[in-house]
Design a protein around this nucleic acid. Structure first.
Length: 150
DNA sequence: GCCAACGTTGGC
DNA sequence: GCCAACGTTGGC
């Protein structure tokens, strides 16, 4: 992290869910949802680095394979109640709104500006960081207007 | 501590 | 349904 003016600004993320297990519709219905069940150390590290107010893309893996909405981190990492053992954590995410137009994985893979997106480079990781540039780019693709709203 | 076997995730 | 990527487990 640099000491540039935006070093303290909000961070951006992408979280994946299989719609069979937990879909965007359920997220919208619940409004605030504990993001539990992460059992991967890299993903856990990312969860632990999340700050209240950070934004995350909500991505449907397996079926859909597209970004369908935006959520905000409503509560920072705490012990995952669904974990029987181990140091696992979860965060609470709050619905911000749906992508006006879902951004598909195929579209992102075809986009040179997104060639080093962690979603693409590490396809099995369920919680990945998104750079501010990538965030803005993907928001443009999806017609998202609320980039800087809070 | 190495590495083969195996399990899981997730794209195609 | 298949397979690549990658994490975990267990024998040595």
């Amino acid at each position: 992290m640099s000491r540039e003016p935006d070093a303290l600004a909000r961070q951006y993320w992408l979280v994946k869910s299989e719609p069979d297990a937990f879909s965007w519709d359920e997220q919208v219905a619940n409004d605030v949802e504990p993001w539990t069940g992460v059992r991967n150390h890299q993903a856990k590290k990312n969860l632990a680095a999340m700050k209240k107010g950070d934004l995350a893309f909500f991505y449907h893996s397996n079926e859909g394979r597209e970004i369908v909405g935006v959520v905000e981190i409503a509560r920072e990492a705490y012990p995952d109640p669904s974990a029987e053992a181990g140091p696992w954590v979860c965060v609470d995410v709050k619905t911000v709104g749906p992508m006006p137009r879902a951004v598909t994985l195929a579209e992102m893979k075809a986009d040179e500006a997104l060639s080093d997106l962690a979603l693409i480079r590490q396809s099995r990781l369920s919680v990945v960081p998104v750079s501010h540039e990538h965030w803005t780019h993907i928001c443009a693709l999806g017609g998202w207007k609320g980039v800087v709203s809070r």
